[in-house]
Lab assay of single mutants.
Amino acid sequence: MLEGKVKWSNSEKGFGFIEVEGQDDVFVHFSAIQGEGFKTLEEGQAVSFEIVEGNRGPQAANVTKEA
Rank of each mutant, 00 (worst) to 15 (best):
L41T: 00
K39S: 09
F15T: 04
E12Y: 10
K39W: 10
E42F: 12
N10A: 06
G44F: 04
G16W: 15
S9V: 15
S31L: 05
N62E: 04
F38M: 12
G4D: 03
G14R: 13
V20Y: 06
E50S: 11
T64D: 05
I33T: 02
G14W: 09
L2D: 04
G22Q: 05
V47E: 01
A61K: 08
K13I: 07
F15W: 15
V6Y: 03
V63F: 00
K65S: 09
W8T: 00
E36C: 14
I33E: 03
A46S: 12
P58Q: 08
G35N: 09
S9M: 15
G16F: 14
A67C: 13
E36P: 12
A61N: 08
Q23Y: 14
E36Q: 10
H29L: 08
G4V: 04
E43C: 15
S48N: 09
L41H: 03
V26W: 02
G22W: 04
A32N: 07
K5H: 11
T40F: 13
E3R: 15
M1I: 14
S31R: 03
A32F: 06
F17E: 02
L2T: 09
F38A: 13
G37P: 07
W8I: 03
E43L: 15
N10D: 11
E42K: 12
V6E: 03
V47Y: 05
I51H: 01
V63S: 02
S9F: 15
A32L: 03
F15K: 00
P58R: 12
E53T: 12
G37V: 08
S48M: 13
K5F: 13
E42T: 13
T40G: 08
V20W: 08
D25R: 02
V6G: 03
H29P: 08
R56W: 15
T64E: 07
Q34A: 11
F27V: 01
E43S: 12
E66C: 15
V52I: 12
G57T: 04
N62R: 08
W8L: 03
G37L: 09
E12Q: 12
I18N: 00
F38C: 15
S11L: 14
E42P: 09
A46Y: 14
S48T: 13
E12A: 12
V28S: 00
V6W: 07
G22H: 04
L41P: 01
N62P: 00
G4Q: 01
N10K: 05
G35V: 06
D25V: 06
K7A: 04
N55I: 15
Q45Y: 06
V47D: 01
E12V: 12
T64S: 10
V52K: 08
G22S: 04
S48A: 09
T64I: 14
L41A: 02
V47T: 01
R56H: 11
A46I: 15
F30M: 05
K7E: 04
H29K: 04
K13Y: 08
E42S: 11
F15P: 01
A61W: 10
V28F: 15
Q59A: 07
T40Y: 12
E19L: 10
E21N: 10
V47N: 00
L2S: 07
S11M: 14
I33Y: 04
Q45R: 04
W8F: 09
G44K: 03
Q34F: 08
A60M: 01
G54N: 06
A67W: 12
F49T: 01
I51K: 06
V63H: 01
A67Y: 11
Q34Y: 08
A32W: 06
F49S: 01
G44R: 03
E50V: 13
G22V: 02
A32P: 03
N62W: 07
G22N: 07
A60R: 00
G37Q: 08
V28Y: 14
E21M: 12
S11C: 14
W8C: 09
E43T: 15
T40D: 09
A46W: 15
G44N: 05
V20Q: 04
P58N: 07
G57K: 03
E21G: 07
T64M: 13
K65Y: 13
D25P: 07
W8V: 03
N62T: 06
A67D: 12
G54F: 07
A61H: 11
Q23I: 11
G14I: 06
A32K: 05
E66P: 13
V47H: 01
F27I: 02
V6M: 05
A46D: 08
G16E: 00
K7M: 03
S48K: 15
T40M: 10
G14V: 06
H29N: 05
F17T: 02
E3T: 15
V47S: 00
V20I: 10
N10I: 06
G44V: 02
T64R: 14
G37F: 08
E36V: 11
F15H: 03
N55G: 10
Q34C: 13
V26K: 02
A67E: 12
S9I: 15
V63I: 05
A32M: 08
G37E: 09
E66S: 15
K13V: 06
S48P: 01
A32T: 08
D24P: 15
L41S: 01
P58K: 11
G22I: 03
F27P: 01
A61Q: 09
E19S: 13
S31W: 05
E66F: 14
G4A: 01
E50Y: 14
S11F: 12
L2A: 08
E50H: 12
S48L: 13
V52W: 07
E42G: 07
D25C: 08
F38D: 13
G54I: 05
F49M: 02
K65E: 04
E66I: 15
W8Y: 14
Q45T: 10
E53G: 07
P58C: 07
F38Q: 12
Q23R: 14
E36D: 13
Q34K: 12
S31K: 05
E43N: 12
E66T: 15
T40V: 11
N10T: 05
K7I: 07
M1L: 13
G14F: 09
S11K: 15
R56P: 05
E36G: 11
G44A: 03
V28T: 03
A61D: 06
K7S: 06
Q23F: 13
I51D: 01
Q59V: 10
M1V: 13
E50M: 13
K65A: 12
E12I: 12
G57L: 02
E3C: 15
E50N: 13
V52L: 07
V6S: 00
V63L: 07
G14A: 09
I18D: 00
Q45L: 07
E42L: 12
V26F: 03
F27M: 02
F27C: 06
R56F: 13
S48H: 11
E53Q: 14
Q23M: 15
G35F: 06
F17C: 07
H29W: 08
E43D: 09
H29V: 04
F49A: 02
T40L: 10
V47M: 03
D25S: 05
L41Q: 01
K65C: 08
I18F: 02
G35P: 05
G4I: 04
E43H: 12
G57P: 03
Q59F: 09
A46C: 14
F38I: 13
N10F: 08
I18P: 01
Q59W: 06
V52F: 08
V20C: 07
E50I: 15
E53R: 10
K13E: 06
E36F: 10
